[in-house]
Design a protein around this nucleic acid. Structure first.
Length: 408
DNA sequence: AGACTTCCTGCTCC
DNA sequence: AGGAGCAGGAAGT
């Protein structure tokens, strides 16, 4: 193995908080390699990240067989090859962490148009959408149906262990790259994944791998669905057009195409669009987001009493209208704020607020608005107070038709 | 179009 | 103790 030195980038915690962004349910493979270090096998190397208040620190570990130094090479060319790898890792880190958008500015924008965002976001700054490999995102979110983050993580880890190329080890823990579509398109895969506890998702993964692998040149088809302004790593930049209510044309097309894959419905397609394909207006509406929409945005009444395909589109369009082009990013902040794994931040907040109440008791009666989940049940969340029938948000958009499913 | 059922597994709850 | 009930859905009816 070849271990590079640590490098650093100036990044504030409000622009990127890896401790939140790497475990808020958008990626499933990062693990803590030491107390304050996150590592993941990506793009032929083990990438490790650390962060302090001023810098993001990164390091790559390459397999010893990766850069095959030609026997005829001179010392100069060997140095150049190391140099090229370093540059590649920096470029990859910037690409993967999606460091372009000014997150602090976006938070201000979302807070200015949405009181609920303003209320909930302060404890969850630095939640940045990663730009993951589209293929990995696709398979990861196929695994996510009827599932939870920790089990999804172990399933994806198993996929890499059995079908992904080994890159190297840290403290005897193996790190693999994500398997290719071809590796998962083997007819033995379905039964094997079944045995590994993937359940009904085993068939989805196998069939989707066959379909993607049969599209021709590897994953070019999938990468071709990327937002041209944020293309796959190493590809050329184009233009994506203006945001309209249902999202830009490229987003709608990508979403529709993804629906043709087995195991991919509207929610999974939106996750891939947002987290793999760079379509920032994509708003995946899962059961949690649906709960948030009912609790804080007056959904769940009248025609929108249940999460149907029409309601799904209505919720997503509402958030696009409210938050703008990066609606999916804002959605992810509120989603993270509702995750049970981060609920201790809300408890701390409540304790602080109670302390403040005691301190300022004489000043003014204080209304407690902070909603704390004390049970694991999310089914009986109270609707926002003051709901009126005429405030109910109605379905305004035609439901996007599901494209015909390819069968073999 | 919307409501309902089934699908795998692992966990919590009672 | 052991069976509902549920968890960051999709597909079929």
């Amino acid at each position: 193995m070849r271990v590079t030195e640590w490098h650093k980038l100036p990044v504030s915690l409000t622009e990127l908080c890896i401790n939140t962004s790497l475990r808020c349910g958008q990626s499933f493979r990062w693990r803590k390699s030491t107390e304050d270090e996150w590592s993941c096998g990506l793009h032929g190397r083990i990438l490790s990240l650390r962060q302090d208040s001023e810098y993001l620190h990164y390091r790559a570990i390459f397999p010893s067989t990766k850069p095959p130094t030609p026997p005829s090479s001179t010392a100069t060319s060997a140095a150049q090859s190391v140099e090229a790898d370093e540059d590649d890792t920096l470029a990859f880190v910037k690409h993967y962490l999606n460091l372009g958008p000014n997150l602090g500015q976006l938070y201000e924008q979302w807070a200015s148009t949405d009181p609920n965002f303003r209320k909930r976001a302060p404890k969850f700054t630095g939640v940045r959408m990663l730009r993951q490999d589209p293929w990995e995102a696709l398979i990861g979110f196929i695994c996510s149906s009827n599932n939870n983050i920790s089990r999804i993580s172990s399933m994806v880890s198993n996929l890499c262990l059995h079908y992904g190329p080994l890159i190297g080890h840290i403290d005897n823990v193996p790190y693999h790259d994500f398997p290719t579509p071809e590796a998962l398109a083997d007819p033995k895969v379905e039964a094997h994944l079944m045995k590994l506890g993937f359940g009904y998702r085993a068939k989805y993964i196998y069939k989707t791998a066959v379909m993607v692998a049969s599209k021709g040149d590897g994953i070019a088809w999938l990468n071709g669905l990327c937002n041209p302004e944020l293309p796959a790593f190493g590809e050329r930049i184009g233009e994506a057009g203006e945001l309209v209510e249902g999202g830009r044309d490229g987003y709608r097309k990508a979403h529709e195409e993804l629906l043709a894959l087995h195991g991919v419905g509207p929610k999974v397609a939106d996750c891939v669009c947002l987290m793999g394909l760079g379509w920032s207006e994509s708003v995946p509406v899962d059961t949690h987001v649906w709960q948030i929409a009912q609790r804080d945005y007056r959904f769940g009444k009248g025609r929108n009493s249940s999460l149907t395909a029409a309601t799904y589109t209505a919720v997503a369009n509402h958030f696009r209208k409210l938050w703008g082009k990066e609606a999916g990013w804002a959605h992810s902040v509120l989603f993270t704020a509702d995750l049970k794994a981060f609920s201790e931040r809300l408890v701390e907040k409540k304790v602080k607020e109670e302390e403040n109440v005691i301190k300022e008791e004489a000043d003014e009666p204080t209304v407690h608005n902070v909603h704390i989940k004390t049970s694991t049940s999310r089914k009986r969340i109270q609707p926002a107070s003051g709901d009126k029938e005429h405030d109910v948000i109605k379905v305004e958009e035609k439901v996007v038709r599901r494209s015909k499913r390819m069968r073999n």
